[in-house]
Design a protein around this nucleic acid. Structure first.
Length: 933
RNA sequence: GGGCCUGUAGCUCAGUUCGGUCAGAGCGCACGCCUGAUAAGCGUGAGGCCGAUGGUUCAAUUCCAUCCAGGCCCA
């Protein structure tokens, strides 16, 4: 007789091979046509909302691995919150305006741009953004990310643009928006402002001069030797043309300075460390040091400007270095970034007497009208003439050039728009709000706090085409901003209807109300500002443009989640816009993730060749593996990816998949509605399996709650490998296969297996969105509504009925002993005593306490150890026994199992041969056959 | 150069919160078993001076300092 046919061997059509690359798109299409996202909305209508507000990626290029990480994390969060009972809506967005797009459109247009209107260029930019939104949308959807893809928010939507303009207008109305000068890169040839990204650095030969600024104030309180001396502070510069704009000289607060008598009636002040080299360059051979001193004593003292009849203030700044020059830094706030910053601190004017052609204005007498670079020599000559030129040469160094015309650019102060950090108390309030937000990880608070604390006023203007205009008018006479609620409303309506283009298409008269008059000076002439807003303002107000606008969302958001670079970016601009106009942070919590790096922890770069594109991973392994990677990593730190890591993840995926497949394959004849066994009637070990499941559920739910998905992954994976595959399921095989199909013992096991699979699939659903659904479809029939999608189900909950610490302790002990038995078996195997564990008979000698406990469940030990026989003795000497290192006094002796091997269940038993009808099987199997037949 | 952060086995993670039982797991690897989860399953084993150096302490992977390496943001 073929006894194998009498066994209940596992059977399922669920494929072992995942074929993710092929199946995932099919699954996505199925969800799409089944309107899964809409069904989730319907199902959770009325539930508490959980709003993760999407930070908009820039609509340019394909997604990269970092964007994929970000979106997958968001998806896992939204799904897990949805599955614990929230109405978790997800509205994705895109950041559409800005220089990179304008730049690329410029390149495409080439010479054609010259003949185009600003509106035409803007149209090109709009369609460019649209193209990449479509591309990225498909890429995000392919990752399994679920959301309102057909109705995302775009910062270039007319309504969004209208809100950007309105929010900016509110800042103006409040008095926080002001116009002031700031130096920016300027191309004198193109007569245009340039952004950092439009600068190319090339070597350039420039003059290098040392200039003596005569000290005007008495400093004998600092250095007594200097009384009645002609004292000069010596500066160094490579841009002599900025000397006319000099307003100060900066010294470093920590450096030591020295006064040098040059024996020609002059005393020079410069940094001690650089003094000798400088003096040598000046050709000064005979000199004496009069004394060293700290810079602090000179702060607020004054020099005379060497060319003009005004003062130059001595100030302190950390930006001063000893790498070159004299340690005394020529400071022209209108012509340098650091000069500007330090100038603000000392209340210096942002003085820049240069026009948009790069020529000096009439303010500067002897070089008026001259081009700055040409004026260099004139100024050097003048300095020499006045005997304040200490030294001069020419040098070559890296200098910024215009990306378009390739000519050297200058730093030039132009009027810009700012949002004040102080006028309306924005800085103070923002800092207070930071402490009302939950920062995850907690150090995010430190990071953004430091930034807000130290940042200058927010410069929000850009001299660009592709963006939302700073929609304000100012008086042509006195430059006062002309703003009121009616203007804001009026422009809002216009923008909402025609988009921001309307600002450029219509004249000031058409946009402004009739009979407008400057409330300060009474003028009726106004200027329409044509600068556009910093794109950080665009995305910064998304809380207003999205959360406040869509009735199914909420303000503030429950969570913002982006990379840690966004402390400076989006978290920052969102905080300032929200606090500025609403007095409150737009988020309750902010979660940050690290950056994706290679296996060695180095950043990815094309030149190094360690870049991994999400598209490639998807094509090779499937999006599920990418999602698995996200879930397995602790994203709070930087996270690593490499072919090796992906390989490991695919192995882990297979293990989990296979474990689920095995569970399914033993449920082919199980109907949970009719065949399930009540918990109280289940076998001991099945009850224990549910205790372990309870622990997994508790752990995973807590981890989902605190966004620690790697804990979910590791918990799930270890449960599958250790609890299930290596322990419970291995033991269960005998019972599942050999017991009569409908017997209590088999149904008990199936009941446990079904509960376990149901819970495991739901726990993995937020992460393994595809595989969970695939398994779900193969689950034994229940009702159609439940079957529809695992994603419509809740996460499993801890079942209090299964809690049983006595049982848990018992099995903890059995497991300890089991570990010793497997070691003993391995030794016996190595000695060729046995092969399969069922070849063995195990004799265990235990000390009395342990013996008493083991005796209580002696009947179960045989199956738990998966051997043919277990004999339990109390503290007996056993020859050739394995002695446990872990459990004192435990001895285990292995010998070949007596009796014959049952052909059906493979267990050695003395009853084999007893039944003449079935001479090759054991009594247990004979009994089973009787029931089956 | 400054701010914030990270550094535990080849890999992914635990742990050390208030310092004191040999630093744990899985994967991978090696070896073996099984062939009734089979392009599967089971077992055993070898892998870590807890980034480096100093300091505090009776005692540090765990506290402090410095350094090195790496990341983000500034300059």
């Amino acid at each position: 007789m073929n006894y194998k046919k009498t066994l209940n061997l596992p059977s399922t059509k669920f494929p072992m091979k995942a074929s993710l690359v092929k199946r995932e798109p099919e699954q996505l299409a199925h969800w799409d046509s089944g309107r899964l996202y809409e069904k989730l909305r319907e199902n959770s209508a009325g539930n508490d909302k959980f709003i993760l507000h999407d930070g908009p990626p820039y609509a340019n290029g394909h997604i990269h691995i970092g964007t994929a990480l970000n979106k997958i994390l968001k998806d896992i969060i939204v799904r897990s919150r949805q599955m614990v009972g929230f109405d978790a809506v997800y509205v994705p967005g895109w950041d559409c305006h800005g220089l990179p797009i304008e730049h690329n459109v410029d390149k495409e247009l080439g010479a054609a741009k010259a003949g185009m209107s600003q509106t035409d260029v803007r149209k090109k930019c709009r369609s460019y953004a649209e193209k990449f939104i479509d591309i990225q949308r498909e890429e995000f959807k392919r990752l399994g990310v679920m959301g309102e893809w057909e109705n995302p928010y775009l910062t270039m939507n007319y309504k969004y643009e209208a809100i950007i303009a309105r929010e900016c207008g509110q800042f103006a109305l409040k008095g926080d928006l002001f116009r002031s000068k700031k130096p920016i890169y300027w191309c004198c040839s193109c007569k245009t402002a340039l952004a950092e990204a439009e600068i190319e650095y090339k070597d350039e030969s420039t003059p290098s001069i040392f200039v003596k600024f005569p000290l005007a104030d008495d400093v004998s309180d600092v250095i007594p030797e200097l009384s009645d001396q002609k004292v000069y502070v010596v500066i160094w510069t490579t841009t002599p043309w900025t000397i006319p704009a000099n307003l100060a000289i900066a010294l470093h607060p920590q450096y030591t300075y020295t006064a040098v008598d040059t024996k020609n009636g002059e005393v020079l002040i410069l940094a001690r460390e650089l003094a000798e080299n400088c003096l040598e360059f000046f050709g000064c051979k005979d000199y004496t040091f009069l004394g060293d001193f700290d810079a602090a004593g000179l702060e607020h003292k004054k020099c005379r400007h060497p060319l003009h009849d005004r003062e130059s203030l001595l100030i302190l700044g950390d930006h001063v270095t000893l790498e070159a020059g004299t340690g005394c830094v020529h400071t022209a706030p209108g012509h340098g970034g650091e000069d500007y910053e330090v100038g603000l601190k000392y209340g210096l004017d942002v003085y820049s007497p240069v026009d948009d052609r790069g020529c000096f204005t009439d303010e500067v007498d002897f070089v008026a009208g001259q081009f700055v670079f040409k004026a260099n020599q004139v100024i050097i000559d003048e300095l020499a003439e006045r005997n304040v030129l200490a030294g001069s040469e020419s040098m070559t160094h890296s200098y910024p050039h215009c990306w378009r015309c390739k000519k050297p650019v200058i730093f030039r102060a132009t009027p810009q728009w700012f949002i004040s950090m102080e006028k309306g108390g924005l800085r103070k309030k923002a800092l207070q709000e930071i402490d009302r937000v939950e920062w995850i990880p907690h150090w995010g608070r430190e990071r953004i706090y430091g930034m807000i604390e130290n940042r200058p006023d927010w410069c929000v203007s850009r001299q660009r085409a592709w963006g939302v205009p700073i929609a304000v008018f100012y008086c042509a006479e006195c430059e006062t901003i002309h703003i009121n609620p009616q203007i804001i409303d009026r422009l809002y309506s216009l923008f909402e209807k025609h988009g921001a283009d309307v600002w450029f298409d219509k004249d000031t008269d058409e946009l402004l109300e009739d009979n407008a008059v400057c409330e300060k000076c009474g003028s009726d002439q106004f200027v329409k500002e044509t600068d556009i807003l910093d794109v950080w303002f665009d995305s910064g107000v998304s809380h207003a443009a999205v959360l406040e606008q869509r009735p199914y969302l909420q303000w503030p958001a429950d969570l913002y989640l982006e990379g840690s670079d966004q402390h400076r970016g989006w978290f920052h601009s969102a905080l300032l816009t929200a606090v500025g106009l609403r007095g409150q942070a737009p988020y309750k919590a902010v979660l940050t993730h690290g950056f994706v790096v290679d296996e060695k922890g180095m950043k990815m770069s094309k030149s190094v060749g360690n870049v991994i594109a999400p598209e490639k991973v998807i094509k090779q392994y499937g999006a599920e593996i990418l999602r698995l990677w996200v879930s397995a990593s602790d994203y709070r730190d930087d996270i690593r990816i490499s072919p090796n890591i992906l390989k490991q993840l695919t192995d882990a995926y297979k293990k989990i998949r296979n474990t689920c497949k095995f569970l399914l394959s033993n449920l082919y004849d199980f109907n949970p509605l009719t065949d399930a066994v009540a918990y109280s009637q289940m076998q001991d070990i099945d009850q224990y399996a549910l205790i372990r499941l309870n622990e997994l559920i508790a752990k995973a739910r807590a981890a989902f709650e605190s966004y620690e998905f790697h804990t979910v992954y590791h918990g799930l994976y270890n449960y599958c490998t250790l609890d299930l595959s290596a322990f419970y399921l291995d033991i269960l095989k005998d019972r599942l296969y050999t017991s009569p199909p409908r017997s209590d013992e088999r149904r008990s096991a199936q009941t446990a297996i079904h509960i376990i699979l149901d819970a495991v699939v739901r726990l993995m659903a937020p992460i393994f969105v595809f595989t969970a659904e695939e398994i779900w479809r193969y689950m034994p029939d229940t009702n159609a509504k439940i079957k529809e999608s695992v994603h419509l189900m809740p996460l499993p909950s801890v079942n209090p009925e299964w809690q049983n610490s006595k049982l848990a302790n018992k099995w903890a002990q059995v497991l300890e002993v089991r570990a010793e038995v497997t070691q003993a078996l391995e030794k016996a195997r190595a000695a060729k005593l046995i092969g399969h564990p069922l070849d063995a008979s195990v004799t265990i000698s235990a000390p009395s306490a342990l013996y008493d406990q083991l005796r209580e469940y002696a009947d179960e030990l045989r199956s738990v150890f998966i051997v043919s026989e277990v004999r339990l003795v109390q503290e007996q000497a056993l020859e050739d026994a394995f002695e446990s290192d872990e459990i004192e006094g435990l001895k285990i002796h292995i010998q070949a199992a007596p009796g014959a091997k049952c052909e059906r269940c493979w267990i050695y038993d003395s009853s084999v041969g007893a039944d003449s009808d079935h001479p090759t099987i054991c009594e247990r199997c004979t009994d089973a056959l009787a029931v089956i037949e």
